[in-house]
Design a protein around this nucleic acid. Sequence first.
DNA 1: CCGAGATAGTACCGATCGTTCTTATCTGAC
DNA 2: GTCAGATAAGAACGATCGGTACTATCTCGG
Lengths: 193, 193
Amino acid sequence: MPVKAGERLDPEATRARILAAASEVFRRRGIHAVGINEVAEAAGASKLTIYRNFGSKEGLVEAVLTDRTQRVRAWYQQAVDRADAGRDRILAVFDLVAAWYAEAGFRGCAMMNAATEDRAHDGAPQRLAQEHLTFYRDLFGRLLTEAGVRDPATTARQLVIVLEGATIVSAIDRNPALGAEARVIVETLLDAA
Amino acid sequence: MPVKAGERLDPEATRARILAAASEVFRRRGIHAVGINEVAEAAGASKLTIYRNFGSKEGLVEAVLTDRTQRVRAWYQQAVDRADAGRDRILAVFDLVAAWYAEAGFRGCAMMNAATEDRAHDGAPQRLAQEHLTFYRDLFGRLLTEAGVRDPATTARQLVIVLEGATIVSAIDRNPALGAEARVIVETLLDAA
DNA sequence: CCGAGATAGTACCGATCGTTCTTATCTGAC
DNA sequence: GTCAGATAAGAACGATCGGTACTATCTCGG
């Protein structure tokens, strides 16, 4: 049967629906383990529609990751903007991180996971994961500069290590308490900086 | 043609050869991306021999990871034993880590990578990755207790976060300098503990 | 020197993969 | 009302996957 009765014929909404469904199924089961058929079923879309919108599975993966990194960046920026200037803005990042670890079915960072799965190639997942880390470094660098830290670049790189370490340990151990532990480390590093 | 002329017919050596070849090809290209045919070719073994020794691809993966975690644990224990008692033993761990990041083709921790690739299942990779983290926590806990740190368990969990964070960032960014950065963080955390 | 076991090589099986194609139906602009 | 485009459903294709079967040859203990 063709298009479901009652649903809009809206190409942008279709694309967004596929992106959301693919993002969710990739997150839960991994990229390699999920076929286009499964994405199509989860999205309520046909394979033809997926290939017309994204060209290939590789294109779909890149679109999913690009969408994800942009959403994550916006979330962090908003959390930072809501916090008071200074050290609170850095801790606000790690408060958001702690809430993220506590989400049901948390499985780590989509960009790091995708780059790990695709570690033989220098494709979009590798590039997007590196750019994701660069975003964190730049964000922390700005906040540390605002907070008057002496060597903001060095401390920013330290905070990225803590953020990614807590993320993967929390994902592997299925333990949301890593968010609080990361925050303690960050406070120690800020005290020392 | 059958067994290569001049080579020993040694089942243990064959098994070890397959393990080494599989470990290397999994490390470079990932587990999902590598088929049994490729492992057989890399090992100079037939598929029959692989299946007789390991039963299935899943069994091979578990054997590879088990062998890997045991080797890694021995390396860390030896590095610790060579260092002077106290804080030096903890820093010796991170010196070994820094050398590991600098190895050609470094791609991160095999156990974390495998658990990430197989994140939908609660199989051997998940279990071995969690046990690998537990090894680190216990090792750091012992060393911190010896060094007279007040709350060794808390600091041990912090060091695991730093170790794993530096490992994944180094792997993604292809930057061995993360080893030195991790060491600086560790010194700060030890000073504060 | 002979039999049991290990091995390489290869063909093969059913399933699934990414991708393309066909068909039928619906939507929306004109 | 008509028609171009979007879509769903699913068949089909070649490739590859994990796993099995078969054959021929080698090693080694007796």
